[in-house]
Design a protein around this nucleic acid. Sequence first.
DNA 1: TGGCGGAGTTGACATGAATCAAGTTTCACA
DNA 2: TGTGAAACTTGATTCATGTCAACTCCGCCA
Lengths: 232, 232
Amino acid sequence: MPDSHYTDVRALHLFEAMDAGSFETLMRGSYVQNFPPQIELITEGEPSDFLHVVLSGAVDLFASWNGRETSMATVRPISTFILAATIKDAPYLMSARTLEKSRIALIPSQDVRAVFDTDNAFARAMVTELAHCYRSVVKAQKDLKLRSSLERLANYLLRQQARAGGAADFALNFEKRRLAAVLGMSPENLSRAFKGLKAYGVQVDGTQVTIRDPEDLARLAKPSPLIDDPTL
Amino acid sequence: MPDSHYTDVRALHLFEAMDAGSFETLMRGSYVQNFPPQIELITEGEPSDFLHVVLSGAVDLFASWNGRETSMATVRPISTFILAATIKDAPYLMSARTLEKSRIALIPSQDVRAVFDTDNAFARAMVTELAHCYRSVVKAQKDLKLRSSLERLANYLLRQQARAGGAADFALNFEKRRLAAVLGMSPENLSRAFKGLKAYGVQVDGTQVTIRDPEDLARLAKPSPLIDDPTL
DNA sequence: TGGCGGAGTTGACATGAATCAAGTTTCACA
DNA sequence: TGTGAAACTTGATTCATGTCAACTCCGCCA
């Protein structure tokens, strides 16, 4: 990994408090790579050789069984994934693929485990990171199990709007079939869901979305910080 | 907490490597309590005052939104729950209730955070525990999203059989309506699912289950270690 | 011992969402 | 600027599950 990337990675919460020597050890064996969209980065069941860090772009974590497949979570910068598998030295439970063009740091798992054993600050940062991952999955599961597809879309749009700075109109950052997968529904159903949201003042033109009356949409969406607040 | 409980708690992986003084600090403020079935221990949204440890019995983690409720995971001895909320000092994302008569240790969250800051062995143990919790939720989510209710029941029975030592017949440890909630289906549907499993050699008499031909049942259930192995 | 009540079952029906099969629009590229 | 492929939409149908209501079974105890 060229030195220019060191500072980017070092800025991540997971790495910022750790000892300089430990950090150097991790970086020596690691590298950063750019991936195009739709590349499968890891496959469930395989041993966890690398800790992955999404520096930019987005990664979809998904799982398969008996010929079926489902999206589990979306990882956005800047965070790690498969940290749990790495630290337990256990096989991946999920597969991962890039949703967009993404820049990803790969750090050998054995180095991570070695540094974890010696660097206390790193061990502590890892707790915070794992707790965050855990809570993200829980929130995603609540979104999925408690809401209908229409409600999931409504809340997704409100979250996107907030992320985009609160403007009445903003762009979807996925193509629609991808968004459907992320929201756990078929593309056909997403189409119908968008149509259903017209009644709540949502206009869609390609990837451009306009929310006429956020209050109205929120009455349907009923957003809850315990599901929708990414900082919690 | 009477001294007699100290050894039980100390035996847990999370607490076994930590400094004796730190352990003493945690135990001083904590207590063990027996709860009858169906008691709500914590409610989502509340601040995380205590780290809970299930010593015996079983606890259901569930979540609600907009009048709906869903079971998220079942916690069995010996493990903790809401560790992530405790360490982040963030509100609970899930509620918890006892499924059976349960013995639960309650450790003040602020003590846990204080000891976490000073005891390196404890911080490391916490990483393992959190990684385990994370992977448990992921497995539960896979079970739920990828399998039909019939398949979930079939796999549940095979897991129970393994837990009971592999004998052809064993007892369900829940009453059926409770089992239905755990498996994420209505009691009516569970009834139908059991009937559907007759064709695969499953006999049910009250809470007593007999699996005539595990091979046959496994052909339907298609158990996968990446979902069903509790040690992974 | 009769009858009350709760768990469990069963059948009829409603609903949400996936699937299938056409269409239609969009857009890159010749 | 035309054309083909891919993305998207739409309608019809199917499937899994939940819901509602009736009914059985069984134990308990007045």
